[in-house]
Design a protein around this nucleic acid. Structure first.
Lengths: 353, 353
DNA sequence: TTGTATGCGTTATCAC
DNA sequence: GTGATAACGCATACAA
């Protein structure tokens, strides 16, 4: 059993350099001011020689700051969450913060637990990508004044920075594209709203746009829970039966897109000619699923890094009123929104940007 | 500006309960022994009243243990990594550990940086899902005797627990399935081996199985780098041109599968009848891509939670020799390995388990 | 400009 | 059984 030397401490460095701990600490934190070149040189050499690194734990204890950022995510299995997480992680790293991850695994009641746990580790701020079900009033006490930024989903009564897709723009882009492609009858499919702000916003945008469009187009929206694939298929059957020409479905997110694709496959219909499909959230596979699935791609990386940067600004003391940042999505038009089948023309599915 | 009360400390609890800090600490750590019921009750009440939680930071400082586990991941954008991560995170949580995440973002040289950073945070152990390029000899010093478990990829000279897909079984399952489906000419496509153990194992398994098969089947393997999509298409053209009947491709992982699909689409071929495709790594979209992409699904969740549990056992002091755990994958047969096209029969793509 | 002393919130070692 | 007290590694007020 090899015994490993304990990591060297500030005391070791001080001894090695023949100075006091305070001097080493000064070198670490206020290198510029208050230090004679000669001493600085010796301290630096000692640090190098002992390959000394300050203990963030001890620092956190003393200063109350930990260089840690807590990320609470509803479901790390969701590619959207991961993409955002990834962008955020990068920005944090660049700013010298480390990320502590807490995954809710879709158990919403664990949200406050996650916050508490991260809290005890003295994280300096939180990025929340959760269901948004906990009211701000219950969150506030555990936050203890530490900054928070919300991603994708708002929390009632929590007035903090918010970063998200521009849902109105995204839904409008979808509808405009469908109209241009020749569809006139629309069905928006969402998971049960359940108070989730992004879903609600998308539904509202859908409704208001449809109102504005007037009689030239018609549409409804339905909630279908994940375990009711049969209900979804039935809804699609009804939709198509009641329409004079091929209708189109707008999937509120990637999960729903996937389920629509499954249902359409099961029904034996062709995406595009028989029923249009466009969804919010793009995936690398989308170009190759059936005739290609049209989608609005979210700028997930930007969302994540913006969230992180906002948070870090707040940690740095910024006291501006709560900001709301909305980033546009970009439409990827593919075969699932092409009324005329291309099977005959020999064209191949793929990206059309 | 609302001022937030500082979190209560062990001293607050002691004062509130009219006992000493030591007593409170005892209640926290050795509740069972050495404590009169009366005092215990009072302490408990005080803790409740002040909603006190011990500071993990201070604990870590004093005891050297942090209840933190460090996870270094090559690319958090890779769904495989995330799936593993997710399983690991869950197991850690259940054991009362929190996960600190360090993403290499595919910059391999950041591996030792990641280890160092996590190290300073006093993580009690590491789960590594990286390229495996750093030799054990360079890793060992920063590990300082703390346990490590490797996922999916081995490191040379690092004899620690290892958890991974049973690559031999997986590749054999693929080949057996292809043979049964009627294919006889095989091409394994991998990203450049670059010393990554999982890729090497899969190639070796491919070669040895082919050897064993003898003249009834033939095959080669090629490395194609991510940015050489043209080269991949050309390789496929050559493959098909040189084969008497439809050949089949074995994609070494999900990323490669995706690229093959893209190339085949570009070539205008039908997956299955024109060229077979089976890949390691399944995705939710696979059933709906073209005729359905056949794949070997990895037990990612199990891999992750096993990794975490191994690590936690080691942290607990287990001193057994390094273990190597190989979990079998499960074959999902779909249309991309069906020689006869089903287009005519009206059957619909989907899972066939 | 540098050193001494104290405290951050815990746990552990001693007394009592 | 319980209470002082020291120490973990660091940063800072104060003294020099």
């Amino acid at each position: 059993m090899s015994n490993h030397p304990p990591r060297s401490t500030i005391a070791d460095v001080a001894r090695h350099a023949g100075v006091s701990k305070a001097t080493v600490s000064r070198f670490l934190n206020h290198r510029d001011t208050l230090l004679s070149p000669e001493i600085a040189r010796r301290v630096e050499a000692a640090i190098e020689a002992l390959s000394y690194t300050p203990s963030p734990m001890a620092r956190a204890l003393k200063r109350g700051r930990s260089r840690l950022i807590g990320l609470v995510v509803a479901d790390i299995t969701n590619p959207y969450s991961v993409a955002v997480l990834s962008g955020a992680e990068q920005a944090c790293r660049q700013a010298g913060y480390l990320m502590m991850l807490f995954n809710l695994a879709n158990e919403r009641e664990r949200e406050s637990v996650g916050l508490k746990v991260l809290s005890t580790y003295q994280v300096e701020g939180f990025i929340l990508n959760t269901m948004g079900l906990e009211q701000g009033s219950v969150l506030t006490p555990v936050l203890r004044g530490r900054p928070v930024v919300l991603v994708d989903r708002l929390h009632q009564g929590l007035e903090v920075d918010f970063v998200s897709l521009d849902n109105v723009q995204a839904v409008h882009a979808c509808l405009d594209h469908l109209l241009e492609a020749g569809y006139r009858e629309f069905l928006l499919v969402t998971e049960p709203l359940g108070g989730v702000s992004s879903r609600i916003e998308r539904v509202r945008a859908f409704e208001s746009r449809l109102d504005a469009l007037g009689p030239q187009a018609g549409g409804r929206w339905i909630e279908v829970s994940v375990d009711d694939q049969g209900g979804l298929a039935q809804a699609l059957r009804d939709l198509r039966a009641g329409a004079r020409r091929p209708p189109a479905v707008l999937a509120v997110n990637g999960v729903v897109s996937m389920r629509i694709v499954a249902a359409v496959a099961q029904l034996g219909w062709r995406l595009g000619p028989d029923i249009g499909l466009i969804g919010i959230d793009d995936t690398p596979w989308a170009p190759y699923v059936g005739p290609g699935i049209s989608a609005v791609a979210q700028p997930t990386d930007a969302l994540g890094s913006l969230a992180a940067r906002c948070l870090i600004e707040r940690i740095g003391g910024l006291a501006a009123p709560a900001r709301s940042i909305r980033l546009p999505g970009t439409l990827m038009a593919r075969g699932s929104t092409r009324l005329e089948s291309l099977a005959a023309s020999g064209e191949v599915p793929g990206n059309r940007g």
